[in-house]
Design a protein around this nucleic acid. Structure first.
Lengths: 180, 180
DNA sequence: CGTATCATGTAACTAGTTACATGATTCA
DNA sequence: TGAATCATGTAACTAGTTACATGATACG
């Protein structure tokens, strides 16, 4: 229930504001990123959608089909939009994991431009810190250091470096777009 | 209980084979990677250590201290080593997430050289597949595509590219070391 | 004088998984 | 003929979190 956590509830709600979708669609969307972050299982997705509907935050339209099973297309209601708005711009105070970061990134369309920039800057700060710390640790590693530790830290350093570059260039693009 | 999952139980067991540690040490170890993967909380770590001890897979030595609270140093028993060996070389069949990959990487020291290479190669295959698919999707994105989606996929692509490079160079080093 | 680090742990809770069930269609 | 994809869902379970409790020392 902390501020930084992207609970499945709001994450799904956020995705549905982009365009109405079925549970299956949401699952598919996650598939292309499943090597990076693990998407929700049907066992958590469908109950979440049901709960959202019961709370009146989404509406369902059942689309029957001869060939395929009927699809249930969920769309956000005005109450849902309101609930999301109330939730989304709450600042993320604590340190976020990659998963939370990506999930929030996926909701960027619902974020104000400022909110997005803040989110990216905060992540930049955090990863920057870890990057520096990792570099320090990696430098002081000797042959005595456990192989697994060495590999994991080296791997982390490589990813952190790339992420920092990506954050910088994205922030730059963002400020460029805002200036126009 | 699937084969690919690194349950906390075996993960902790694997770390302890590197060197005896306290629960606090394990938590600290994770800290430097917490931006990438989230480490276990004390609420799951301590009970896990207790369960391992109750099953005779680890032994505890309490080291009292005047200034600081007493530390409990856990070390793997022979039974623990056996249990780990039985578990660790089971092939990972399903697609693994980044988190599982890193956790297994951290246990590389316990893996046979072949096992490690297999692990890396399998990940290479998987990420390679996703990388190709992502590239395809990113290419076909237009301005109509949702901003969040665009950003997340672009971010994913950047990380995937780096990861592939890292995997290649690490595999190369590994085969180089094996040849000597 | 308050906060952070060190260091352990428990209890109540929730979020999530796995495994199942259904059933049509298409592909090899 | 068997497997995969499409598409929904439930029930039983487990793994994990948050919040609390304790208590010392050191730092600013």
């Amino acid at each position: 229930m902390s501020a930084g956590m992207v609970s499945l509830r709001y994450f799904v709600l956020g995705l549905l504001t982009q365009k109405p979708m079925s549970g299956y669609d949401i699952k598919r969307l996650h598939k292309s990123l499943s090597w990076l972050i693990r998407g929700p299982s049907f066992g958590s997705l469908y109950p979440t959608l049901r709960a959202l509907r019961e709370d009146g935050l989404v509406a369902v339209e059942v689309i029957p089909s001869q060939e395929k099973p009927p699809r249930k297309i969920y769309s956000v209601t005005e109450a849902g939009r309101q609930a999301l708005r109330a939730w989304i711009d709450r600042p993320v105070t604590e340190s976020v994991s990659l998963k939370t970061f990506v999930m929030r990134l996926l909701l960027a369309g619902n974020l104000s431009c400022d909110g997005l920039a803040t989110h990216l800057r905060r992540r930049r700060e955090q990863v920057g810190g870890y990057h520096a710390a990792l570099g320090q640790i990696v430098k002081t590693m000797d042959e005595g250091t456990d192989l697994g530790q060495r590999l994991a830290l080296d791997y982390g350093l490589a990813l952190a470096t790339t992420e920092l570059r990506w954050l910088d260039s994205t922030l730059e693009q963002l400020s460029g777009a805002a200036a126009i």
